[in-house]
Amino acid sequence: MTTGVVFRPQLPPEELKAAVDAAEAAGVDELWLWEDCFLEGGLTTAALALAWSSRITVGIGLLPVPFRNPALAAMELATLARTFPGRVTVALGHGVQDWMRQVGAAVDSPMTLLREHTTAVRALLAGEDVSVSGRYVSLDAVKLDWPPATPPRLLVGARGPRTIALAGEVADGVLLDSVTDPDVVRRARELVGPGAHVAAYTPIEPGLGAVAVQDWIAELERAGADTVILQGTTEHPDHTPLIAHLAGDVG
């Protein structure tokens, strides 16, 4: 069981280093970064966070698949995974469809694109020679020259049962969004199976005491979560009290 905290991109990127330093010093397991439109890039902030730290795992959750060709996504992720082995986790997802339409990247079948993209990225990170001609993904004998010795954990961000089931099929597990009910974790665990990784973002309101936060983490763990990631709310995005809660949890 690991715990983490989100640096929300509603905060400016120049505040990221202080968050990395605080999380690293507090012994927090994981720092997670979002790629919300039109705020901060997930891969660039991840590279910075990894370079500014020495042991913390950096999670990117999530990268919207309509934004990137899977070969480019795999190249970028392989670079991070080789440079910072064992310290990168990434989630791929549909992306918010209103945003995808806004940038001209929406597709008729987001589920098909997510399946094709995730399958291709996973194979490329495993060092495979990939040729595929799908509805959205087309690769002709693409193979990374610098695949990572150990591929990063690859998750699919999901809410609905179809996407959660897809995560268990084509990825290493699932990243659940805004979990406020342990039953969401239990249902996800049933869908992805016992061997898959279940990570859960959970919003924490300000003023919630450290003991209550730790009890809530334990409840989500009992429900089947492998990683619980605390996130600030839209009204209170600050990660500082969340890091303090986790520091108390890990000593």
Score class of each variant (00 low, 15 high):
73 A>Q: 00
36 D>W: 09
168 G>E: 04
55 R>F: 03
187 R>P: 01
244 A>R: 14
145 D>G: 13
202 T>R: 15
140 D>W: 15
133 S>H: 13
228 V>I: 12
175 L>P: 09
218 A>D: 15
60 I>M: 10
23 A>Q: 00
219 E>R: 13
192 V>G: 00
157 G>S: 12
213 V>D: 05
70 P>R: 01
36 D>Y: 08
176 L>T: 07
73 A>S: 09
28 V>Y: 04
128 E>L: 05
11 L>M: 15
188 A>T: 05
67 F>C: 12
149 A>P: 00
111 M>R: 13
8 R>E: 12
160 G>D: 15
98 D>M: 01
136 Y>D: 05
158 A>I: 10
190 E>R: 14
189 R>C: 01
120 A>P: 05
42 G>K: 01
61 G>W: 10
224 G>D: 14
15 E>Q: 13
12 P>R: 08
101 R>H: 14
156 V>W: 01
114 L>K: 06
19 A>H: 01
53 S>W: 10
248 G>L: 08
156 V>D: 04
122 R>L: 01
89 T>P: 02
246 L>H: 12
140 D>T: 15
47 A>D: 02
75 M>R: 04
163 T>D: 01
128 E>C: 07
148 P>M: 00
228 V>Q: 04
18 A>V: 00
179 V>E: 03
121 V>D: 07
45 T>S: 14
176 L>G: 10
215 D>C: 04
69 N>E: 11
162 R>M: 15
178 S>G: 05
106 A>Y: 10
210 A>H: 15
83 T>D: 02
122 R>P: 03
145 D>Q: 06
162 R>Q: 13
244 A>W: 02
86 G>E: 08
13 P>K: 13
44 T>M: 14
231 Q>F: 02
54 S>C: 05
231 Q>H: 07
153 R>D: 07
101 R>L: 10
37 C>I: 03
39 L>Y: 12
97 Q>N: 09
60 I>Q: 04
46 A>K: 05
136 Y>Q: 09
107 V>A: 08
71 A>P: 02
139 L>C: 07
24 E>N: 07
34 W>M: 06
163 T>V: 14
7 F>K: 10
105 A>Y: 09
201 Y>A: 09
4 G>D: 03
39 L>M: 09
120 A>Q: 08
88 V>Y: 03
77 L>N: 03
251 G>F: 03
156 V>M: 00
98 D>C: 02
80 L>C: 01
173 G>I: 00
148 P>Q: 04
